[in-house]
Design a protein around this nucleic acid. Structure first.
Lengths: 149, 149
DNA sequence: TGCATTACTTAGCCTTGCTAACTAATATCA
DNA sequence: TGATATTAGTTAGCAAGGCTAAGTAATGCA
């Protein structure tokens, strides 16, 4: 039996799923972002802080983690330093590098921002029944794997 | 046995899950958006077009669907009409209303945009094994339910 | 009839992407 | 070694797309 008689190797199922996933992500984020102004920090600042939680990073590392271009990170870091969310230090071995790390204030703001950002989603998650919760948890593992290239 | 003796009604599990979901959504979207410029339309325009696929809408409906404020939709619609993605018509019964509908060009652009936007995600989805695919599919149902208020 | 509400628009601000073009430091290799 | 290429970050300037404040026109209602 030829391939064509059995239908395509993969049907429209994956595409439809990709589409729904994309749409769900959009709407999830639009909600989460609504609380941001209450932190005093912007969404991009909060996201950068969350990357810095795992330790100091060069601006290049930060750009890669945030998937943005160098100028975007350069300006973001300048703003964040100006308002005291991060500190910048040079690198002893390579004077081209700029390393940045979170300040105590940055840590406080991140804590609050995460609280606010996640609260809406969390409230929804808490309404799930145990089996939905399990499904979602496994799916997040899957999605994280998908995005890890 | 009192509630407190059984531990909190819900632990940190839901919060952690909410956090990971939020982060996954951010990174998923950053990837999907990278292909947008190839359509000639912007992300917001593509999103609005997808809402209009189900039929004409008033600007207010569109704003609600997109979860943005009136001025944002007003400007978006003006731009989209100018470049021919939508048409606007008045409402016979209520002259305050502005109804908009997709044009043939809008339909074409939406088709292309969706293709491009979804392709990256779809490619990742196609790498999943069947059980991961099932999990993800069920989880998308769950997420859609979560967001339906 | 007159006031409140609703739907949308206009003006103008801010954040956060981007590219182009630059500087300074480091690496490479003839 | 010295010239050149590459890399890291910055600066300038643009565009998209959020927002609020304030305005207009139409409608609803007491």
């Amino acid at each position: 039996m030829p391939r064509s008689a059995r239908g395509p190797r993969t049907g429209p199922r994956e595409r439809e799923l990709a589409d729904r996933l994309h749409s769900a992500a959009i709407h999830l984020l639009r909600r989460a972002r609504r609380a941001d102004p209450l932190t005093g920090a912007t969404p991009a600042q909060l996201s950068a802080l969350s990357v810095l939680m795992s330790g100091p990073k060069t601006l290049g590392d930060l750009a890669a983690a945030e998937q943005v271009r160098a100028p975007t990170i350069s300006r973001l870091a300048a703003d964040m330093e100006r308002i005291g969310l991060i500190r910048r230090r040079g690198d002893a071995d390579d004077a081209r590098l700029v390393r940045v790390e979170m300040s105590a204030k940055g840590r406080r703001v991140l804590g609050k921002g995460r609280d606010l950002r996640i609260s809406d989603i969390e409230a929804r998650v808490r309404r799930l029944d145990p089996s939905e919760l399990d499904t979602l948890e496994r799916a997040v593992d899957v999605i994280e794997g998908m995005l890890r290239d």
